[in-house]
């Protein structure tokens, strides 16, 4: 058997422990898909796989037990899923053309969740469109609010929804619900002064608890959607660590630009001898220094007026 494993992996087929058998990896940006695709996935698993579908940790499907020889047929069956999920595909009909950059994951977001500050699925799709078919090892995740159910701080780029609370003191009756919620569930950014509420803008993390708990609509959400961008969290062997805050009150455009800029930075600085051409971005930043990364990352980025840039960044984590 003569198979180019490098090409095969790039085509989103895994080299498994069972010789001659692969697993097809279907990525679902933002974990959001129409139910009709589940039937197609079932069909692939039952026709060419071993009848099993694994729900991956990155909101994709992995279909194991596929013979190497059947990969072209699987790619044919995957085609409507790729098109339906609007995946960037360089060559039509031949499956995924990149798999190094991992599926952009997201919590359920404001399609369903009351806490979410934005539509995580839509933004995940926008990022997917902007960064694929890049093949570099990037992990991006989105979460609707600072609860961080999507665990975005364990990703290279973590995007956390925020709203800038708007206070109409004429509608405030001093019931205390916002102050209580902020103190007990969030960061104690609210205080009562003269029977009205004062927000500490520096402390506020934009979680929206004040809005959610206000019974009169004195607190409302900003029309603009804002985000906290955390960078270079990672799991792995050497130095697992949580991502640190980079930008507070970023917008969609600035985040997409920063991620795209980082691809240029990585192409320039990645260790040419990195095994499998794969190196966590954070280790590259450890090598070049944060300032060099920042120079590349912020090139031509336009931030909202209230954006705060956290610099320099020092990471913690466990060092082995």
């Amino acid at each position: 058997m003569d198979v180019n494993t490098k090409k095969m992996k790039k085509n989103a087929f895994r080299v498994t422990k069972h010789r001659g058998f692969t697993a097809s990896r279907i990525r679902v940006p933002g974990g959001y898909l129409e139910a009709k695709y589940l039937g197609m996935i079932q069909n692939i698993a039952e026709t060419y796989g071993n009848g099993i579908v694994n729900i991956t940790t990155r909101q994709g499907f992995e279909i194991p037990g596929i013979k190497f020889a059947d990969m072209p047929k699987v790619n044919e069956l995957i085609q409507p899923i790729i098109e339906g999920l609007d995946i960037n595909q360089e060559v039509l009909g031949q499956g995924y053309t990149a798999s190094g950059t991992r599926n952009v994951t997201a919590c359920v977001g404001n399609n369903v969740c009351p806490y979410a500050c934005y539509n995580t699925s839509l933004f995940a799709k926008k990022i997917e469109k902007a960064i694929f078919p890049n093949d570099l090892y990037f992990k991006v995740a989105l979460t609707g609010c600072p609860n961080d159910c999507a665990k975005v701080r364990m990703h290279d780029f973590g995007i956390m929804g925020m709203t800038l609370p708007q206070y109409d003191k004429e509608r405030c009756v001093n019931c205390g619900a916002c102050v209580k919620a902020c103190t007990k569930k969030s960061v104690s950014a609210l205080a009562t002064v003269n029977c009205k509420v004062v927000r500490d803008a520096h402390k506020c993390i934009g979680c929206g608890e004040c809005v959610l708990n206000c019974p009169t609509g004195a607190w409302t959400r900003s029309h603009e959607k804002y985000f906290r961008l955390t960078i270079f969290g990672r799991t792995g062997k050497k130095n697992p660590r949580l991502g640190e805050d980079f930008i507070k009150w970023a917008d969609e455009a600035s985040i997409i630009k920063i991620i795209c800029n980082t691809y240029d930075y990585v192409k320039n600085y990645i260790d040419p001898l990195a095994p499998g051409g794969k190196e966590h971005i954070g280790y590259i930043v450890d090598r070049t220094g944060f300032e060099e990364f920042k120079k590349w990352a912020l090139k031509d980025v336009q931030f909202p007026a209230n954006a705060e840039i956290n610099t320099p960044i020092y990471w913690k984590g466990i060092k082995y």
């Binding site: 404001n110 009351p114 500050c117 934005y118 609509g217 409302t220 900003s222």
Partner: peptide, 15 residues
């Protein structure tokens, strides 16, 4: 209609 005036994101309020 108060656009985005609801408690949850992308929801409006009528008042």
């Amino acid at each position: 209609l108060f656009k985005d005036g609801g408690s949850f994101s992308d929801t409006d309020r009528i008042r």
